[in-house]
Simulated scan of single mutants.
Amino acid sequence: MTDAAKTVPFPARRTLRSLADLTEAGLTTAEKAQQLQSVADRYAIAITPEMADLINPADPHDPIARQFVPDSAELTVSHTESADPIGDDVHEVVPGLIHRYPDRVLLKFVNVCAVYCRFCFRREMVGPQAGTKVIPDLDAALAYIRNRPEVWEVVVSGGDPLVAAPRRIAELIQALAAVPHVRIVRFHTRVPVVAPGRVTAELVASLEHPDIATWVAVHANHPAEFTGESRAAIARLAEAGIPLVSQTVLLASVNDDAETLAMLMRTFVENRIKPYYLHHGDLAPGTSHFRTTIAHGRSLMKALRGHVSGLCQPTYVLDIPGGHGKAPIGPSAVDDIREPRTVEDFRGQRHCYPPE
């Protein structure tokens, strides 16, 4: 944290949830707050004290502020953007349960988050306006899972499922563990990074069950998000034997340069988190200022290959609009067009490969 950030009179350790809060914290001005009212009326605001502490208000390009502080650009909606950019609605089998892939389902366990990212692909569906903290028909979701023997894994999302009380999480784990064909439950969360104090011994214990394997996918987009508190929270999960993987969204002016991306992936690995997905920005309303081109994303993946450890290589994926699922879109080192076939090394030199 910079000296400039240290001098900001943040309200005492509470989540900032309004433009008035942001103004009081020095993260915007009264004049800008008036201009942002239309954004706040449409999309929820929440910045935890841990994230607010990282923001340098004097830096107009601060990567943490860009992720969480509202921007008037969010009111610019292109014709390609959609309130349901990855097609959740197409595959919703009961309220809050998405069955898109044959062997797994996604359960929207809660409709709220600890923080609200300005680029969220479910930004029209999460937040206080969603009306309920837990999905309305969990019993129906569990009944569907029990009746589908092909379902091997349940991905628990939302919202952010780790904002739920440990008791509710434990009840969910117990219910899923009782289904013989469900062997994996995977939680997707920002909590260990943005609200590490929630990762208590009670929460960690709620994730564990002898009859089912729990995995946690930790979402972070910039190495600055890894504070001492967040590293300790992640360690509590890792030391409990819970496997950890990462999620990152490729974001313009946040992490869309090779140096930042390499540092982020190394930070994941140093904290016992295996890089898993680098998401191309979804076509959510008002998020075009965050999206890079696919060509730029591929160039970044190419820059990572060979220059950082193989442990640090995520899969670059695009969620195909309309509900068609994720597709890997990273660069290929193989030239299949010309003969003899060549393979490019990490230095950019090509080498012949014999005919198969």
Score class of each variant (00 low, 15 high):
residue 81 E to R: 09
residue 159 G to E: 06
residue 15 T to C: 06
residue 351 H to Q: 05
residue 304 L to F: 00
residue 24 E to R: 12
residue 123 R to S: 11
residue 306 G to P: 05
residue 236 R to K: 15
residue 3 D to V: 09
residue 21 D to P: 04
residue 323 G to P: 12
residue 187 F to M: 06
residue 328 P to E: 15
residue 226 F to M: 08
residue 131 G to R: 12
residue 68 F to K: 04
residue 154 V to A: 08
residue 177 A to L: 03
residue 316 Y to P: 05
residue 297 G to T: 02
residue 310 G to P: 05
residue 330 G to N: 10
residue 114 A to R: 04
residue 257 D to K: 01
residue 274 K to P: 00
residue 11 P to T: 07
residue 327 A to G: 03
residue 134 V to S: 04
residue 327 A to E: 08
residue 52 A to G: 04
residue 233 A to Y: 11
residue 1 M to R: 14
residue 176 L to M: 06
residue 240 A to Y: 01
residue 66 R to G: 04
residue 27 L to I: 10
residue 253 S to F: 01
residue 214 T to S: 14
residue 123 R to G: 07
residue 49 P to W: 11
residue 58 A to K: 15
residue 299 S to Q: 15
residue 158 G to M: 03
residue 249 V to H: 05
residue 107 L to G: 05
residue 150 E to Q: 14
residue 115 V to W: 03
residue 22 L to R: 13
residue 196 P to F: 01
residue 44 A to T: 00
residue 252 A to G: 11
residue 172 L to M: 14
residue 297 G to E: 05
residue 263 M to C: 07
residue 309 S to Q: 00
residue 300 L to T: 09
residue 299 S to P: 02
residue 89 D to Q: 08
residue 88 D to S: 08
residue 296 H to A: 06
residue 26 G to Y: 12
residue 155 V to S: 07
residue 268 F to Y: 15
residue 53 D to L: 02
residue 80 T to F: 11
residue 88 D to G: 10
residue 292 T to Y: 07
residue 28 T to Y: 10
residue 94 V to R: 14
residue 153 E to V: 02
residue 167 R to Y: 07
residue 34 Q to I: 09
residue 281 G to H: 09
residue 184 I to L: 15
residue 173 I to Y: 00
residue 293 T to N: 05
residue 307 H to M: 04
residue 319 D to P: 09
residue 64 I to W: 09
residue 226 F to K: 08
residue 97 L to Y: 10
residue 165 A to L: 12
residue 196 P to R: 11
residue 218 V to Q: 09
residue 73 A to V: 01
residue 223 P to Q: 12
residue 356 E to A: 11
residue 116 Y to D: 08
residue 324 H to N: 10
residue 2 T to N: 13
residue 171 E to N: 13
residue 351 H to Y: 15
residue 183 R to F: 08
residue 118 R to Q: 12
residue 87 G to K: 08
residue 24 E to C: 02
residue 273 I to C: 08
residue 118 R to W: 02
residue 154 V to D: 10
residue 83 A to R: 13
residue 310 G to L: 04
residue 166 P to I: 13
residue 95 P to F: 03
residue 219 H to D: 03
residue 314 P to N: 03
residue 252 A to D: 08
residue 256 D to W: 00
residue 80 T to Y: 10
residue 92 E to M: 14
residue 305 R to H: 15
residue 199 V to Q: 05
residue 21 D to L: 02
residue 301 M to H: 08
residue 119 F to V: 01
residue 148 R to V: 03
residue 344 E to L: 04
residue 19 L to R: 03
residue 37 Q to L: 09
residue 354 P to R: 15
residue 286 G to A: 11
residue 298 R to V: 02
residue 66 R to Y: 11
residue 39 V to A: 07
residue 123 R to A: 07
residue 144 Y to W: 01
residue 174 Q to R: 15
residue 141 A to E: 06
residue 341 R to S: 02
residue 211 D to S: 14
residue 290 F to C: 11
residue 114 A to Y: 03
residue 119 F to H: 15
residue 75 L to Q: 12
residue 46 A to S: 14
residue 30 A to I: 05
